[in-house]
Design a protein around this nucleic acid. Structure first.
Lengths: 342, 342
DNA sequence: TTGTAGGCGTTATCAA
DNA sequence: TTGATAACGCCTACAA
């Protein structure tokens, strides 16, 4: 089963390769009849163009790549679904590229841009703190979507779409305070975590302060470090420690929904009640949060809007409306059954 | 920012392209000194080889692709993680390729095989019923991992790894029967569903029959059709109908965990208790099932073993130990809090 | 140990 | 409307 090439097709049809090429690519300037004949032969012989050769030769494509860091994070599922739908609606080709946790997303992007002649790139998730030099290696427009960012990045030349992690985290902790809670524990990433964890922790502290509650280091439960620090298991472990130490709190804020779900399990498993003994709040607004019992109080990130806006900005940039936009969406406070008024 | 090629590097270094190529690819027969010099220049100028050109020219690579149908299904997350780890441990390059729900996985595979000069392919998920002709277009070894299969596929030339859906589904329904339940509803895919849904439904019927329970069509609640038929929402909707109709049952078997979770929500939301009013059982053994409350009784598919065995078979085939293997793993009955003895 | 040249399978540019 | 033919960027004989 030797692979058949465009030359073979041309030979079979008794035409030149360029004619076959025209047929494949729906280019004008070809007789309908010869075109049909060629397409028939192609079908019959199961000819499939080699993408590497195409990408090598083509000057431009309609490829848009979405690079996801942490593809098994359920938060990204609806975002990816929406991105795919929208990209294909625009007649672009959607390329989903998974980036390993310890891979450099920019390196991957630079390589992919050359390999696939990308028109644009969406970065999803992860934490971004790359030098200007490096970013300039990317020659096509790109948008950072729901990625954490270093402060020094703020005035660099790129576009982004996200919610304000500090503000939204503030919002939900403030909500807990307003419910009457003044002893609120937090399940947070370790201090060296430069990711969203840091920002959400900041919001927590700020909300306490604005509600005249003194920040208590003892109520901070750090998640294990490692790639699965934002997992259910990680939340479970942290909450378990909290319970064992009989931490003096009435509410718990987990910096992601998955962590919150793990925490809920630990609490319920130990015979405590939610929200009677502990109110629990999460962050992200996973679909899952609506289906567990008690349903989760959380901040919902508007994933559809984030996806849509990401692409609007990207396609604008592709169409040369070249300005850098930083779009910040508001999160939505979802009040579930996991929190109660004190 | 014109992209720099191997020629440019050669020119800068004052050497030939083949020498540069040798340096890049760690080929023998090159002076350490010139090699180092070349690598330095490459670093300095941020040269990155074009993958399309490489794939085009190379006769063979170490690429192994994993094609996933339904990448946002949490069941696949740990499988993918494990596959990636093992593939990289073997010094192969892991390529994750997402296959759209309405895309033909074989078409995608054939194309990708040519494009990336694949050494092997893993198909994950979906339902498989392709003609022999088509499968023969694949010239490299491949393994079907946890994919549903048509009966006619059974004696075709390929390898597979999976659990026996009928048997495992039988196992858990039988368990429900042994608990004393004899009115067991099922949340199942529609009849025309040629996927795992059909097999698991079969196991359900067989278990009833073996326990001398008459099959009652009225206790079959069909999930909406469509791509999200195995979702939480879909399970929620089906269970809601069941409750509204006050179906006469004491237990509910959902053909996937996600469906079960949705069903649990509907039940609890309507003021019923699990397992006191309804026992609920799922299928898959998602990590999530351990974290929700009540924890889910389910069949756990041994995902790590499935992943490992899939690759063992694949690499054996790549190494020319050319036999077709059909490995069937046993599922593990996980008894959670969602079921009780009657 | 190194360099030259040819070709991988396409597309794009010409001239016919 | 067509067909040669020259790239695309790289690897690999083969020759030096």
């Amino acid at each position: 089963m030797d692979t058949i090439t465009i030359k073979d097709v041309a030979k079979i049809c008794g035409v030149g390769v360029s004619t076959v090429s025209r047929a494949i690519n729906n280019k004008p300037g070809i007789n309908e009849e010869t075109k049909n004949k060629i397409l028939t032969v192609i079908k019959e012989n199961n000819y499939i163009p080699n993408n590497s050769a195409r990408n090598l030769k083509r000057s431009e494509t309609n490829n848009v790549a979405v690079l996801v860091k942490g593809i098994n994070n359920p938060f990204f599922s609806p975002v990816i679904t929406e991105l795919e739908r929208e990209i294909e609606k625009k007649k672009y080709t959607f390329i989903l590229q998974h980036v390993d946790e310890n891979q450099d997303e920019i390196e991957v992007a630079i390589e992919l841009e050359k390999e696939k002649r990308l028109k644009g790139i969406v970065f999803l998730g992860g934490y971004f703190s790359h030098s200007k030099d490096k970013l300039e290696k990317l020659t096509v427009p790109f948008v950072l979507s729901t990625v954490g960012m270093a402060d020094k990045m703020k005035n660099m030349e790129y576009s982004s779409v996200a919610v304000d992690d500090v503000k939204e985290s503030y919002k939900i902790v403030d909500y807990l305070c307003k419910l009457g809670h003044n002893k609120i524990a937090v399940l947070s990433a370790t201090c060296d975590d430069e990711s969203i964890g840091k920002l959400r922790f900041e919001g927590y502290k700020k909300a306490l302060s604005d509600n005249n509650i003194e920040f208590n280091e003892k109520l901070v439960y750090y998640l294990q470090s490692g790639n699965d620090r934002y997992s259910m298991q990680s939340g479970y472990n942290a909450a378990k420690r909290l319970l064992e130490e009989k931490a003096d709190c009435t509410a718990i804020f987990a910096i992601t929904d998955l962590i919150a779900i793990g925490a809920c399990r630990a609490i319920l498993e130990n015979g405590y009640s939610i929200p009677d003994d502990y109110s629990v709040a999460g962050y992200d607004g996973l679909e899952l949060g609506r289906f567990i019992t008690p349903s989760l109080t959380t901040i919902r990130q508007p994933v559809e809007n984030i996806a849509k806006e990401t692409l609007r900005i990207l396609f604008d940039a592709i169409d040369d409306k070249e300005e850098f936009v930083h779009k910040v969406f508001a999160g939505e406070l979802i009040v579930g059954e996991s929190t109660k008024k004190l």
